[in-house]
Amino acid sequence: MVHEWALADALARYIVYRISGEGKKNVKRVIIRLGVLQSIDKEILGFALKEILESMGYQVKQIDFEDEEPVLKCRKCGYEWKPNMNVFGETIREAIHFVPETIFSYYKCPHCGSRDFDIVKGRGIDVTLIEVE
């Protein structure tokens, strides 16, 4: 059982937290923004989210995912780039999957070699829309 379940659990609790005041149990549509940096398995995440919401007494009809490609920007030289995650081996991709900030352990600015860069976007998971009926 992969750790997408833990993230789905967090999303389910958040969705319930957001709509519990409305007294409605049917969720028509949810949009989830997924930072690609973390390489989340959408199929497992969507399945787990539905299962967990059902166990909490809520039904969800449609889950849509919006990918957000990662962009990094070096604080030292200002270079901005889109990282190619395929340059890493499976172990490092897995590490970033669990804790995305471990990218600072394995990645440097391709222009100046600094580890002091920002993750401008493409990290994490967020619920951007909840429609209830």
Binding site: L7, I96, T102, F104, D118, I119
Partner: peptide
């Protein structure tokens, strides 16, 4: 977090410390 950063350095500015904190507490049972 050393399971995932291995023996490599993990330099983090404050906002990333915050992210690692939330991520680890969210996924760890």
């Amino acid at each position: 977090a050393a399971y995932y950063s291995g023996d490599e350095p993990l330099p983090l500015r404050g906002r990333y410390v915050d992210e690692v904190f939330k991520e680890i507490l969210c996924i760890t049972r």
